[in-house]
């Protein structure tokens, strides 16, 4: 079986069976790519994970793209990324067409209203976890609150906030870089 096809089916399987998004997928990707298929070493895998997290886009898709590229260049990347995305596309399209047809039934409306409160809580929960692991210094704190206010109060574009954040990171680096050298 051609490796391109294998890349597609392996990532298709991962996309189909992992609930819970990117971070839940990483251990599965590791098991398939490192332990079962022996496509890459564990060290390389960890490096790929960290790159996937500091490049734009969806973490799991980025990891798949990197592994695919490493094995078979451009088409490897293409088939791996397509594989991980295809199950989502199919499942969501089916669910969306059902949901958009039934979303004016009273029971569905009540259920959705309840679900929205749970979604608000789940996002708040994720934010608390993210806050604990990513906001360490006073500057981080100010920046975190600042970007919240920029969006929630002033309706700024998230693009502007992300660009400002990159500049802030580079500025801090210049400052601390100077300190370390001295």
């Amino acid at each position: 079986m051609s490796e391109l096809f294998k890349l597609f089916t392996t990532f298709f399987k991962i996309g189909l069976f992992t609930f819970g998004g990117g971070y839940a997928m990483l251990p599965l990707i590791e098991r398939e790519a490192v332990d079962k298929k022996r496509w890459i070493t564990r060290d390389k895998m960890l490096e790929y994970f960290s790159i996937s997290q500091c490049t734009p886009g969806i973490i799991a898709v980025n990891s798949a793209t990197l592994i695919g590229y490493k094995r078979r260049g451009f088409w490897g990347a293409f088939f791996a990324a397509s594989g991980i995305v295809t199950p989502s596309l199919a499942i969501i399209i089916i669910l969306a067409s059902i949901l958009l047809r039934i979303d004016d039934y009273p029971y569905v409306l009540h259920a959705l209203a309840g679900i929205r409160a749970a979604v608000a809580a789940l996002i708040t929960g994720s934010c608390i976890k993210l806050f604990k692991s990513n906001v360490k210094t006073v500057f981080d704190f100010i920046f975190c609150i600042g970007s919240f206010i920029a969006i929630a109060v002033f309706g700024a574009s998230p693009v502007i906030v992300v660009i400002t954040a990159v500049l802030y990171g580079l500025f801090l680096k210049r400052k601390s870089g100077g300190d370390v050298d001295a």
């Binding site: 920046f143 600042g146 970007s147 919240f148 992300v162 954040a165 990171g169 580079l170």
Partner: peptide, 26 residues
């Protein structure tokens, strides 16, 4: 690395703002 160090705290604030939108509505 340093660009990403700046993004991390900002992203927490951005996601919190999205969470606040859901909260207001829900």
């Amino acid at each position: 690395k340093s660009a990403f160090a700046g993004i991390r705290p900002a992203v927490v604030g951005l996601i919190a703002a999205a969470g606040y939108s859901v909260f207001k509505m829900a």
